[in-house]
Structures are given as structure tokens and as C-alpha cells.
Design a protein around this nucleic acid. Structure first.
Lengths: 106, 106
DNA sequence: CAGAATCCCCGAAGATACTG
DNA sequence: CAGTATCTTCGGGGATTCTG
């Protein structure tokens, strides 16, 4: 979990959690389309490599935003979904998306 | 101005404009406290160096979020303020700040 | 006072190869 | 299938010096 102290501005904490290059996209996909497997995410987040995707997912999990569920089958299967904490970001992400779209449409 | 095309998700565009390490803080300060001079910003954004502050301000200006006004006096005086476009970010920044504070207060 | 101009560093990101 | 393990790259950020 990211440190919760030593932020002069709360917005710094927010940015720390969602500031990775791919994190917003990952959160967005899980938010809009629900639970996804590792391989599905890899295809949807176009251009990301396995290693980086793993890193970003681990950080999101560590920060409590997403849930990782491993099915001990052969071949292995891992599903990712938003936690209830992650879902509290919904209005924020939606707002960022809408603001971006408004500007892009001009 | 940052490119307005080639974004698969509008949120990427948003993040591009405000994603710099110090940009949100700068925008926040101008938003909450109004017009500031270069030297004032440097003190308020604790830890930033002159060069980096200049870079971040130039990018924000290029993207149309802040206004830069030079007073041709001796010694020189430069004031920074939000543009009307920059002010449209208010709900978003406020939302990020509030979300961060809520989590920090837990 | 508000920068411009350099040079430099480091960590996130990417490429590649291998594996339970 | 979903990783792990390494190595490499790259550029945003940082430190320093100089100036109108």
C-alpha cells in the first residue's frame, strides 16, 4: 500500500495510485467491461508488454484497487477485477474521460 | 497544443495535459490562490527547481491551461494565471483532491 | 527576477528469453 | 496461460551555471 502520509496535497496521493502510464486504461477496462483474464487485458491494452502489464497489475493490487484471483488449473487462469475501493474511483475516472472527450470533440 | 487525435481513450488526452509530476500542484495553487509570480510559485511548489518549473509552466501554457503575462519592467515580473480553459478542470481537480483526502483520512 | 543553456541521472518502461 | 528473470533504453526530471 502506498504511503498515506507526507503528502502536502491529497491530490498527490491520488496521482500516485493512478499515475502509471497504463493504470488508468487498465482500471477503465475493468470498470467498463468487468472481470478480465491476464491475456484479455494484454490484448485490450494495446501495445503493453507482458512484463509491464504484470508490474502495473501488481501495483494496482498492492494499492488495493484491483483483486487478483488465481485458479489453480492447468493451464493456469488468473482473473482481475476491481475491488470496492477501486470502484470508488468511478466518478473520478468518468469525469476525466468526459473532460477529455469534450476537449477532443471541439 | 498536445495532439488531439490518436487517443483510443479520451482519458489519455486528459492525463497527457495534467500528468506531469508537478502540473497538478501548479494548477491547484493557481486555482485556489489565483495569480502568482514565478518566484512565488517556486516557493509554494516546494522542492521544484527553476528549470523544471519553467518547463512545466511552458507546457501548461502551450496546452492553453495557463496564461503567462510578462511585465517589461526592471527587474522583470511575470505572472501566471489560469485561462478559462484551465478553469474547466476545476471539478476534476477538486474531485481528485477530495478522493485523495477521503482515503488519507481513513 | 525570471529565466536560458548544459549536462547528467535514475527509474519507469520496453525487449527478449525462459518456465511452472 | 500467465507469468518470472534480465538486460537495455529513454526521457522526464534534476543540478548547476550563466544572463538580460
Amino acid at each position: 500500500m502506498a504511503l498515506k502520509n507526507n503528502y502536502r496535497y491529497p491530490v498527490e496521493y491520488t496521482l500516485q495510485l493512478i499515475g502509471g502510464k497504463w493504470k488508468l486504461l487498465i482500471l477503465f477496462i475493468l470498470m467498463e467491461e468487468g472481470t478480465k483474464r491476464f491475456g484479455e487485458l494484454r490484448k485490450l491494452v494495446n501495445g503493453i508488454t507482458q512484463g509491464v502489464l504484470t508490474t502495473q497489475l501488481r501495483e494496482l493490487e498492492k494499492d488495493g484497487l484491483i483483486h487478483r484471483e488465481v485458479f489453480p488449473t492447468v493451464p493456469p487462469k488468473v482473473e482481475y477485477s476491481l475491488t470496492s475501493f477501486g470502484q470508488t474511483l468511478y466518478p473520478l475516472l468518468k469525469g476525466m474521460c468526459n473532460w477529455g472527450r469534450e476537449q477532443l470533440d471541439k
